[in-house]
């Protein structure tokens, strides 16, 4: 269970979340995104970057609501809403975006 990036292998768990968070790179994000059938656009990157920043500060991904609020501030209400986030990451902004951002999967009743 590993991704291949620039000839380097990066271990991941059963569900595709990387096991060593420091292995993350932008190239890796593109690779994971491809496996998830996602073409990374600027908006995708905006989400991923925000998740990583938030994680840096709090050691956890933000609640969707917090993410929505941040997107709203940045791009206005048209892109700062739940529906749009699901369009970007159909399998849930929290779980799918976390995977691409190289963060652990949020666990629990979520």
């Amino acid at each position: 269970m590993a991704y291949e990036v620039n000839g380097k292998t990066v271990e991941h768990d059963e569900e595709g979340y990387i096991t060593n968070l420091s292995d993350w790179s932008k190239e890796l994000a593109e690779v994971i995104a491809k496996e998830e059938n996602i073409d990374m656009t600027d908006e995708h990157w905006e989400v991923v970057n925000f998740l990583r920043e938030y994680y840096d500060e709090y050691q956890i991904a933000p609640a969707i609501r917090v993410l929505v609020k941040a997107m709203k501030k940045k791009f206005g209400p048209e892109k700062g809403n739940n529906k749009y986030l699901y369009e970007l990451f159909p399998y849930g902004p929290a779980k799918q975006a976390c995977k691409i951002a190289g963060l652990p999967k949020p666990t629990g009743c979520v």
Binding site: Y58, Q59, I60, P62, P104, T107, C109, V110
Partner: peptide, 8 residues
């Protein structure tokens, strides 16, 4: 369950 630390 989430692993949500106090500051978060």
């Amino acid at each position: 369950n989430l692993g949500l630390p106090k500051p978060a």
